[in-house]
Design a protein around this nucleic acid. Sequence first.
DNA 1: TATCTTTGCCTAACGGTGTTAAATTATTTT
DNA 2: AAAATAATTTAACACCGTTAGGCAAAGATA
Lengths: 206, 206
Amino acid sequence: MASKDRIQKLKDDTRCNILAASLNIVKEEGWSSLSMRKIADKIDYTAPIIYEYFNNKEALLKELTRIGYIKLANEIEEARDKFTDAAEQLEAMWMAYWNFAFKEKELYQIMFGIEANCCVGNPCSEVQRASNLLWDKIEEIVPADKRTEEYIDTKYYTFWSVVHGLVSINMTRQLAAGNNEQQWGKDINKQVLKDALEGIISSIRR
Amino acid sequence: MASKDRIQKLKDDTRCNILAASLNIVKEEGWSSLSMRKIADKIDYTAPIIYEYFNNKEALLKELTRIGYIKLANEIEEARDKFTDAAEQLEAMWMAYWNFAFKEKELYQIMFGIEANCCVGNPCSEVQRASNLLWDKIEEIVPADKRTEEYIDTKYYTFWSVVHGLVSINMTRQLAAGNNEQQWGKDINKQVLKDALEGIISSIRR
DNA sequence: TATCTTTGCCTAACGGTGTTAAATTATTTT
DNA sequence: AAAATAATTTAACACCGTTAGGCAAAGATA
C-alpha cells in the first residue's frame, strides 16, 4: 500500500502532538501537574496510547530535554554568527544561554533539574541568617569608597552564583557520571572554585 | 498531672523521629521515593499519624529545608571563626558552603530545588553540541601558551557555573518574589552576568 | 468503683498517579 | 463476507497524599 507513508506520517504527527501537549500543560501548570492522563486528554486520546510512542513517562521527559538541548545549541550558534571578534562572540554565546533559560524556562528546568521550589512561602529568619553572614563579610572587605548596598549585592550574587552553579552542575550530573569521572571532577572543581573565589575577592579589593 | 511534660516530650520525640526517618529514606532512595506511608513504616506508625505533627507533606519538607538552612549557617559561622583576616574568612565561608552542599547533599537539594536529574542515562549527542560550541570558542581566545585541555576545561566550567548558577538562583526564587522584586532582580542580574563574563574573559587573555 | 470524656491510633476510603493486560472496535486483507 | 490485523479503550493494579470515622485505652469526674 502506498498509504504506508501517510500512516507513518500520522503516527509521527501524534508523537509530535504528545510532546507539544506536554509542553503546553507544563507551561500552564508546571512540571508537577504533568500527567499521562492529562496529556491524553489534550490530544483526545486515552492514556495508554502514549505508551505506543514512548516507553514510559521518563522516556517522554528525556525526549523533551533532548529537544531543549537542540534549541539551546541553535541559539548559541546563532548568537556566535552575529559577531566576528572571538571575545564578543563568546560573550554573546553565554548571553544567548542566559536568554534561552528564561525564554524556554520549562525546558531549561527539566534539562538541568531545577524544581520551581515548593518551600518558598515564607523564607523564615533561618534562611536569612546564612546570607547575612556572607553579605556582612563581603561588606567588610569592600573598600570604603565603594561600599554601597548595590555594589555589595552584586558581589554577593556573583559569589553565590558561581558556587551554587558549580554545586548544582555537579549534583545533576553526579548520577550520570561513572566514579572515575566523578574523581576527575573533584580536582577540577576545587580548582574552578578556588580560582573563582580568589578572582572575585581580588576584584573587590582592587 | 506532672506527666504533662513527659507526654509533651514524647510528642516532640516522634516529631523528631518523623524528620529523621524522612531524611534516612531520602538518603537511601532519593527524594522521589519519599512517601508518607514509608515514613510511617519507619517509625512503626500508620500514615495519618504524621498529620498530627505536620499539616501536610509540604510542611514536612519545609521543616527539613529550615533545618538545612540552620545547619548551613552554623557551618559558615564556624568556618569564619577559624580565621581572622577578612579575605581568608570569606574564602573559608564559601568553601564551607561548598562542603555543606556535598556533606548534606539531600538537604541542599531540597533547599535549592535541585532534582537529581532523571534524564541523564545516555547524554546523547545533542547534549554535547551546545557545550562543544562554547568550549571551542573559549579555546580560540586562550593564548597559545596556555592552551591545554585542562585550562580550557577550568574556564569552561567557570563560565558555566556562574551563568547556570545565576539562572538557577533566579528560577527557584522567581515564584516567591513579588513582581517588583523580580524587576529589581532583572537589572542586578544583567549587571552580575556582564561583569562576571567580562571578568572571566579578561582573566583568560591576561 | 462506675461512668464519661478525652486521647492515640488505625482502618477504610477518595481521587489521583504511572503502567499493564484484556477486551473492544475499526480497518485492512484474503 | 470472513478472517486477520491494527487502533483504541476499558479495567485493573499498586502506589500516592489526604481525610473521616471508629475503636480501644487512658484520664477525669461523680
